[in-house]
């Protein structure tokens, strides 16, 4: 396997699980189940209520993707931050591989992890919507709604490389000698994400326009990744 392949495998296996810190007590598993059970029950009650009431129109619901983009940024930031907070950054950076490989492995791992998380969210949502629509006795709507959902999944995923590279760069900037420009990048980045989310969610764009936006975001992504490599080579402080 190539170096990048092995690095990627390592990144993929890294669990987000935090080490127990002094003074922090792990929640007993039973209680986790209890609370998860309560949440699931509430959701089922809500779905049943919606289905019973009828006339539910799944239009606004796709706006949750706005928040999803920020969740993606969180995943990317965590993936970098973890090396520092778990004090493994020395091992990571001492690896005798090009900084490009290190960054690529982090980036791809974040992207894959995010694709998985997003897929799970969508599956949950599909289950919810299907249940409501079945209760409403409106089974014919189901295929259309699901197709719309899959479209949204693809769009959000296509915008994710940009968001994840932004998260990666921001997290590194905060730990580098170029820290003073962190607020700038972070502010501008968030502005762009909000603008893009508004455009995609609130205005009727043609497929062509969407593709152009996505392509531009990919080009910016490459630039951001290059910047991340440069930060690792020259500016990161450990």
């Amino acid at each position: 396997m190539s170096n990048l392949g092995v690095l990627l495998q390592h990144e993929w296996k890294l669990k987000a699980k935090r080490r127990e810190k002094r003074g922090k007590i792990k929640m007993p598993r039973v209680w986790l189940y209890v609370y998860s059970g309560i949440v699931v029950a509430l959701v089922v009650i809500l779905a049943t209520y919606l289905g019973w009431k009828g006339q539910t129109r799944f239009v606004q619901i796709w706006n949750f993707n706005w928040g999803m983009l920020f969740w993606a940024i969180g995943i990317a930031v965590q993936n970098i931050k973890r090396e520092w907070s778990n004090e493994t950054v020395g091992w990571w950076l001492a690896l005798p591989y090009s900084r490009g490989n290190l960054i690529s492995a982090k980036f791809i791992a974040s992207l894959l992890r995010w694709a998985k998380t997003l897929a799970l969210v969508y599956l949950g949502l599909f289950a919810f919507m299907t249940y409501v629509m079945l209760l409403e006795g409106d089974g014919a709507k189901i295929p259309d709604t699901l197709v719309t959902g899959v479209e949204w999944y693809v769009i959000v995923l296509s915008l994710s490389p940009f968001v994840i590279s932004l998260g990666t760069v921001s997290a590194l900037l905060r730990r580098s000698t170029l820290q003073p420009i962190f607020p700038l990048i972070w502010g501008v980045g968030n502005l762009i994400i909000n603008a893009v989310a508004a455009l995609f969610l609130l205005t009727p764009l043609t497929l062509g326009t969407k593709c152009i936006f996505i392509l531009i975001s990919w080009v910016i992504t490459l630039g951001l990744l290059r910047l991340a490599v440069h930060l690792l080579e020259r500016h990161v402080v450990i």
Partner: peptide
């Protein structure tokens, strides 16, 4: 760095 083994200061190992 392929010819150097380095134990960083205050390091931890990957918990997982």
């Amino acid at each position: 760095n392929h010819q150097i083994a380095y134990l960083p200061d205050r390091a931890r190992w990957y918990g997982n």
